[in-house]
């Protein structure tokens, strides 16, 4: 199970990086979304994936699910929601003001 999820996270990160390297602004934003999904899956996998076990360590229980990665992933998901919505608005405004969504034309080499 861990192997499959790790491969999935790897694919997500690979596609994320691919999209991040594109020229179109919207693709880049989607790339960051995919990247953060990959990172979140990694966190979850690091705590080992199990089913049907209690999340808290009690006396006499040896087999339990690690609750910490779930707490971490939740925080991280909320943050990436916020950032993604911000960057969407920012990308929209940038494209509107600069009259282009091509990163090549957003270099800004003039007025140095």
């Amino acid at each position: 199970m861990e192997i499959i999820i790790s491969i999935l996270a790897g694919i997500l990160i690979a596609t994320g990086v691919y999209n991040l390297l594109q020229k179109q602004l919207l693709r880049i934003v989607i790339g960051t979304g995919l990247l953060s999904h990959g990172a979140h899956l990694f966190i979850l996998t690091m705590g080992k994936l199990k089913r049907g076990q209690p999340p808290v360590l009690e006396d006499n229980i040896t087999n339990y699910t690690d609750p910490l990665p779930q707490a971490l992933i939740l925080t991280s998901i909320v943050i990436s929601f916020g950032v993604t919505s911000l960057i969407l608005v920012l990308a929209y405004r940038t494209a509107n003001e600069n009259k282009t969504d091509n990163m090549e034309q957003l270099r800004g080499n003039e007025n140095e």
Partner: peptide, 21 residues
């Protein structure tokens, strides 16, 4: 400002994701 801040946001976002990983 918008042109430069999109780059600023993207690089910081990327390094934050790397940080979580």
């Amino acid at each position: 400002q918008l042109r430069e801040s999109i780059k600023y946001v993207l690089i910081n976002l990327f390094s934050s994701i790397l940080f979580v990983t």
